[in-house]
Amino acid sequence: MKPRPPTLRENRRYVLVRVEPPWPVAENRVIYSAVAEAVTSLFGDAGVARVQPAVIAGGPGWAIVRCIRSTEEDLLAALATVTCVDSQRRALRPLRTSGTVQALRRLLCAVETTPVTGGEEVIYGGRTFSPVRYPGEKVDLFEKGFKSQEPLFLTAEDLEE
């Protein structure tokens, strides 16, 4: 099948999204499921058909979500209602909207985060945690020995106290 000429294609918008927490890395497929569920529950099936959300790229701590032009605001509202990705609590924070993927890729180096996992165990509030440290001051704590781990979100200063 011949590709449709550019003038006949629908205009699209691309939203660069920060995925928090970035660790463990979420696959594009599960991010898409979360976004599609959020759009469906907020705007219904007709809304999904109108917005046509798709995750076209992703990496550690970021994803690029595509939608039809003029539906960006609906997509942003839906992204704001995402609280869970693949049964893990996460937030999808829209950073920038653009008409081209290339423009968003230029921003990626500022978004990509490589947390440092492991290290010494930490005792906080009388419980033992494994820390995940991020560049800067942020530290996430995952409780040791539990199957469903609910993280705590702290700063390095909180741990020093």
Partner: peptide, 13 residues
């Protein structure tokens, strides 16, 4: 912190 939203997101909501 995962439930906090930016002014832009709050405007969308």
């Amino acid at each position: 912190v995962l439930e906090m939203r930016s002014p832009r997101e709050m405007a969308a909501l």
